[in-house]
Design a binder for these strands. Structure first.
Lengths: 157, 157
DNA sequence: ATCAAAATCACCCGAAAGTATGAGGGGAAA
DNA sequence: TTTCCCCTCATACTTTCGGGTGATTTTGAT
């Protein structure tokens, strides 16, 4: 309870204590400077400066820092290419099977036949068979032609 | 010039002037309170409080506001489809030669090495050499990967 | 249950692609 | 002049690809 009170008004309490001590010191100093000419002005000037500094310190402690929000717009370029839409018409026309399409897609991503086999959990022979059937339906002779043609026919993105 | 100087140190100058005026007033007040007991402590206490307030005011004036930057991403849709624009930056970055680019373009059209050789009037070996160099620069292992990567890097349409 | 299509797998073989190594010529820059 | 880069070409070899042939299993429709 009293601890919390102390924590909450810590700065203010410290300021008060500091003020009391300073006043005491200044009073003592006053008694020593009383014989010097213009001692009073110097004395008061010192008080002013010291307590100004104390005020500044207190303000920095208590004041919530101003936060100025700056909004920065950053352009993010997004490829407008809409979501790829598989051309079902061509799929039916060419009578491509689902498996053949899968092989085609992975082929277009640059995978080797063995890699495609690993990806689809089948044997290399199976992939070759599907490739062969795919080439026949697309009427091409090699994978690069298949990929190129499939892209044009919207079978792959 | 002097106007700018004033604007820049406006708070500090005002503080200085305020201090001078206050000292004058307090001096005047001092002469009126000198006959009252404990006048001095009251006098100094008033000084302390007043200049603390001034310090607080000055601190709040001078404190730099924290700048908090909020980045707002603004989506800009670009239509990448129209006229293909060769990415010269990547070309330079990868240090691709003109011949390598030519081979890449024909490769992406589905031509075999021999067909590319016929098209460019060079030998099969030459095409293989260019392909090899191209794969190295693109950090790929086969033509399908090269084509895929080149498309993504806007080296081919 | 039957049948056709799709999927899976194997093997053989030649073609194509890709790697490694080496050589020579021309042009530009230091 | 020397060096570097690009282009061209060759040879030998390895790996991957693709065609051909055939078989079995699975799946979906009737």
């Amino acid at each position: 309870m009293t601890f919390k009170f102390f924590v909450k008004y810590r700065s203010i309490i410290l300021y008060g204590v500091s003020m009391a001590i300073l006043l005491f010191l200044l009073r003592w100093l006053e008694l020593r400077l009383v014989i010097i000419d213009h001692a009073f002005e110097i004395y008061v000037g010192v008080i002013a400066l010291i307590f100004t500094a104390l005020g500044v310190w207190l303000a920095l402690k208590l004041a919530k820092p101003k936060i100025r929000t700056v909004v920065v717009e950053k352009e993010v370029f997004i490829d407008q290419r809409p979501d790829f839409q598989l051309n079902d018409v061509i799929m039916n026309e060419l009578n491509l099977s689902r498996r053949e399409l899968e092989v085609l897609q992975l082929m277009s991503e640059g995978l080797s036949n063995q890699e495609i086999a690993d990806r689809l959990f089948v044997s290399l022979n199976t992939v070759k068979t599907h490739s062969s059937n795919l080439f026949e339906k697309l009427e091409v002779g090699r994978r690069t032609q298949a990929v190129e043609k499939a892209r044009k026919l919207s079978l792959i993105p």
